[in-house]
């Protein structure tokens, strides 16, 4: 464990909690892409199956359970409890265009052709593009609530910090995982235009609105 990975995990946890509280407190999921949240639940489900096969540490197990629990709770709030506030018309990204290619790629390019490893690879590839429906929805509505931008900032920051974690681990442990690194770079690059808008607008107290 290193400082980049720890702050990355905490940033990820903060994002997940911010979103869950935003929906719960405001009793509304306006502006939130339910499709992205389903993809994240799928990412955690396929990545954390090793909860049943190996114990790494209490921290590792607890965080995985929290991530999975919050992900499904968020999906439940969006599609069940507060479904009346779900903006399905703007959440129109064709997720099959993500899941199918990612599924194919995870079968073609992986470290080991075993079920758990392919599912882990699938979750790594899927996570790198899982935010696209959310970013697409913001581009369609042309704006985002400020709390949603904080959620996205923490979510984007987490994988950016993981990139530093991998640099650290390569330098100090001689360890690297090309699949996780390439997917992590793609994932972080997808946030770049959002990061720019967040820093130039939201941090200056303005509302995040895109030129429609």
């Amino acid at each position: 464990m290193n400082i980049f990975r720890l702050t990355g995990d905490l940033s990820h946890l903060a994002a997940i909690i911010i979103l869950l509280l935003k929906i719960w407190k405001s009793r509304s999921c306006a502006g939130i892409s339910g499709k992205s949240q389903i993809l994240f639940a799928l990412v955690f489900t396929t990545r954390y199956l090793d909860l049943f096969t190996s114990f790494i540490s209490l921290y590792n197990t607890c965080m995985k359970l929290i991530y999975i629990g919050c992900a499904y709770a968020t999906v439940y709030l969006i599609y069940a409890k507060f479904r009346a506030t779900y903006d399905g018309n703007h959440d129109s990204f064709r997720v099959e265009f993500l899941v199918v290619p990612v599924g194919g790629l995870s079968v073609l390019i992986n470290h080991d052709f075993s079920p758990l490893e392919i599912l882990w690879t699938f979750s790594i590839y899927l996570e790198s593009v899982a935010i696209l429906p959310q970013l697409f929805m913001i581009s369609k509505t042309g704006e985002a609530e400020t709390i949603t931008t904080h959620y996205l900032f923490c979510l984007g920051l987490y994988r950016a910090l993981y990139l530093f974690n991998w640099i650290w681990r390569f330098y100090f442990e001689g360890f690297f995982d090309m699949i996780a690194i390439v997917a992590g770079v793609v994932q972080t690059v997808l946030y770049c235009d959002f990061f720019y808008l967040y820093v130039t607008k939201v941090l200056k107290g303005k509302k995040l609105s895109l030129p429609a």
Binding site: D9, I56, Y67, D112, Y162, F175, D177, I179, A180
Partner: peptide
């Protein structure tokens, strides 16, 4: 690269 080593990451 040892992908098993990566499984200690979230």
């Amino acid at each position: 690269p040892d992908s098993q080593g990566n499984k200690d990451e979230l």
